[in-house]
């Protein structure tokens, strides 16, 4: 190993002393160009016909897939939005209907109340009138009884005083006169 290093070093020293820059030693150029062409051509052929289409294909596939998935997601979103809109619409309708029903019920109840009130008012008025009539009757009755009693008293007084029984007409006229006075 050591001998090969020394040999190589000697060679290098010789080359450096004789040729100067190894890059400018034209005798090595054909070999370098040849192997550059061979390796580069192989790499180019493999790249252009095999590797790059595969990588590009994979990237393209993924891009398509992502675009596809995005489309699907957009479609799902659209459907969800539609469903939400439909829900909101039906919700609004239900609300309106509920409001209408509530209004109707309120109106009905109010009408019922009014009717009941009227009925109550009517029955009350009837009862009042009856009561008033009864009071009036009782008043009139009482008044008639009072007058009769007055007539009777008057007649008794007159009989006791003059021993004569006055006629009813005279008595009542006299009582009425006295009452007026």
């Amino acid at each position: 190993m050591l001998s090969s290093i020394l040999l190589a070093a000697e060679e290098a020293v010789e080359a450096a002393e004789s040729g100067g820059l190894p890059q400018l030693d034209a005798s090595t150029w054909p070999s370098q160009i040849f192997w550059l062409a061979v390796t580069f051509a192989i790499l180019y052929w493999l790249m252009s016909s095999y590797f790059l289409p595969r990588i590009g294909g994979a990237i393209e596939e993924r891009r398509d897939r992502i675009a596809d998935d995005l489309d699907k997601a957009a479609e799902s979103k659209r459907l969800a939005e539609e469903a939400e809109a439909a829900f909101n619409r039906s919700l609004g309708e239900a609300r309106i209907r509920a409001r209408a029903i509530a209004g109707e019920a309120r109106d009905e109840a109010a009408a019922e109340i009014v009717a009941m009130q009227k009925e109550a008012d009517a029955s009350l008025a009837g009862k009042t009138a009856e009561a008033e009539k009864r009071i009036h009757d009782m008043k009139a009755n009482a008044a008639a009884k009072v007058r009769e009693a007055a007539n009777d008293t008057t007649r008794a007084i007159v009989e006791a005083l003059i021993l004569e029984t006055p006629t009813d007409a005279v008595v009542s006229a006299a009582v009425a006169k006295a009452v007026k006075a």
Binding site: S27, T28, P30, S31, Q32, F34, W35, L36, T39, F40, I42, L43
Partner: peptide
Amino acid sequence: DISFTNSALWMTIGV
């Protein structure tokens, strides 16, 4: 002269 040199070796290794 198209000898397989150390330059060609490293081109080959790289590729």
